[in-house]
Design a protein around this nucleic acid. Structure first.
Lengths: 335, 335
DNA sequence: GTCTAGCACTCCCAATCCTTGAGTGCCAGT
DNA sequence: ACTGGCACTCAAGGATTGGGAGTGCTAGAC
């Protein structure tokens, strides 16, 4: 059904439309892509492609633009990823290697991704997931307020404020030591089991505080799932000031909804995932595409990606997303 | 120069223009604000107000719109703050009191502020500032990588990854205890002084690690200044889809620049500050206004506020910003 | 002196019409 | 199976026009 030349025509339409943002006509194709046929022939091919649903006309007597299905075919069959230049690679490593802690890594990564793709970048904090508890700390602040801190093997630090009552520092030190001995090295499920028994092993006079703290730790272990999402490069949307209603407004609305973003990134796995337009199953993203992938090391895994108009340079974007994910994974693995 | 009626006219122009987004004419004023004079009289007043620079015409034969100077006068002299309704107050407390830690407080607050003002909200994390070091912790992760954690009395947790070399757990515990004894209760300046001497007091075999850790703490103490900024409600900008070039694009650009935002919020003090248009001294904000204020308790102080078009409802916005700042301060004070 | 009624004037805005040109679809011919 | 040619469609850009909203000014009333 689709011979070699029709594929070439589709490829030409996608690439030219992405470049120019304007419907592309038959004459332009033969000229820019030196197909050795006449424009009338290309027109016939275009009619066929339109019948198949790969392209469409904004109105009679305009050129063609790709449909979601057209982009999908392009991504799956007609194009690979455009490798990054050496300069880009160097810039990525240089920028990421300056990070001082997990927070900093995430912030830098998402900004970097926004910059290299010229799109809106979104990134999820690594989940504790398969990681183990490394340390529990209790810090008294003022009056009876204190702070409970749990660090996991991925280097993630979670905190909760707790009521320490009138317990004295010595008792707190003791409690902390006991908690660390009991929990260090345990995964979240096992830790929760141990904690269930823990309070009863504590001397009566600090029982009350211990109960509060145990509850706090359990809370941290349990509510770790909905990880934070960071966004950067929203101003990149302004380059699509036409398409305000179709792209900018809905995407901005979506970016405020953490839940939706989490779901988008949740589908990411080891290879680069592309969701085009309606494929996102979300009204606000019906004219936007999401390019995402997973990143991290075995005990700290999460997603990152970009959001942009369906008319985007998929080969470059996919390559950038993959590259950034790999580099940040490496950084995470190293420390 | 400006008699009672001229002030009333200016007030009418500001309020009507904020409501309708359209230049307001003399006839509309006498009708909507039952001034007992004719439109011709109002026209004379308007001519005077225009001479003084409080209002201007987009073009001949259009109504008048306020200038920056006009808004400024309105804010300073013609309007107070419009108190919040009981419902709003209750919603604020309810929403904020569910927060579990500092991170959560900040996130909730900034979203809340965006929602009640229908503007873009920005909020700065509390600075350590006058606070004191409460606890230092060292957690070993994997291989030789470790995590250094510093908690201050404001409940803020800072972290750095450090190289722990091949030091054994016992030595680390010792080091941690010594650090806590040395630093607990000290302000950042004094702590830095103590740290300068610290490494030389450590046994030779763990000297190397200690040096790295001391450097990390110093780094945390030193780089605490540029605190993080959180943004919410960017989608509220889409209500001004006219004004794309004048408001949306430049504001979006500005929001990506942490430095600029920090400077904006840095000027905030105890009362509500309003910067109108050009007063922001920043090209991108020349048709935007910033309403900001400080919040926090004595040892943890920072700024929060909103950014929107100069044409905004100042009385309501100012009241909301102040109310949210007060509630979040109270929450912080309570722990 | 202060306000008002009236009127000429300005200028945006929306509607209308026209032209232009890009691009298509189709058919007859090679 | 491809191509040249031609009629057709339609968006986009100008030019023209007719309100309509609003102003500024002036002469007169209080």
């Amino acid at each position: 059904m689709l011979d070699e030349r029709k594929l070439a025509v589709l490829r030409a339409i996608v690439t030219d439309y992405v470049r120019s943002r304007e419907p592309v006509g038959s004459r332009a194709i033969v000229e820019r892509h030196h197909l050795d046929v006449s424009s009338a022939t290309v027109r016939n091919d275009m009619a066929a492609l339109e019948d198949e649903g790969y392209i469409t006309q904004p109105h009679t007597s305009a050129g063609r633009i790709p449909t979601d299905k057209g982009y999908r075919f392009f991504v799956d069959r007609l194009a690979g990823m455009k490798p990054l230049t050496a300069v880009e690679k160097r810039a990525i490593t240089a920028f990421l290697s300056g990070a001082v802690d997990l927070d900093d890594i995430v912030t830098r990564t998402v900004r970097l991704l926004a910059q290299v793709t010229s799109q809106v970048a979104i990134m999820q904090y690594p989940t504790m997931g398969a990681s183990v508890v490394r340390r529990v700390d209790i810090v008294s602040l003022h009056d009876s307020r204190g702070l409970l801190i749990v660090v996991n093997s991925a280097g993630k630090v979670a905190q909760r404020s707790v009521d320490l009552g009138s317990s004295d520092p010595i008792a707190l030190d003791l409690l902390r030591d006991r908690l660390n001995q009991a929990l260090a090295g345990l995964g979240p499920r096992r830790a929760a089991e141990v904690l269930a028994e823990f309070a009863s092993t504590v001397p009566l006079e600090s029982r009350g505080v211990a109960v509060g703290i145990v509850a706090g730790i359990l809370d941290i272990l349990a509510t770790d799932q909905p990880t934070k999402i960071v966004v950067a490069g929203i101003n990149n949307l302004t380059q699509f000031s036409d398409e305000f209603e179709t792209t900018i407004r809905p995407v901005l609305d979506t970016l405020e909804e953490q839940v939706v973003l989490l779901k988008l990134l949740g589908e990411a796995s080891t290879d680069v995932m592309v969701r085009i337009g309606q494929e996102n199953m979300h009204a606000n993203l019906s004219s936007a595409s999401v390019v995402a992938t997973g990143y991290g090391v075995d005990d700290a895994w999460a997603g990152l990606g970009v959001v942009g108009p369906t008319r985007m340079d998929y080969p470059s974007t996919m390559a950038s997303v993959r590259a950034v994910a790999r580099y940040v994974s490496r950084i995470l693995a190293e420390g």
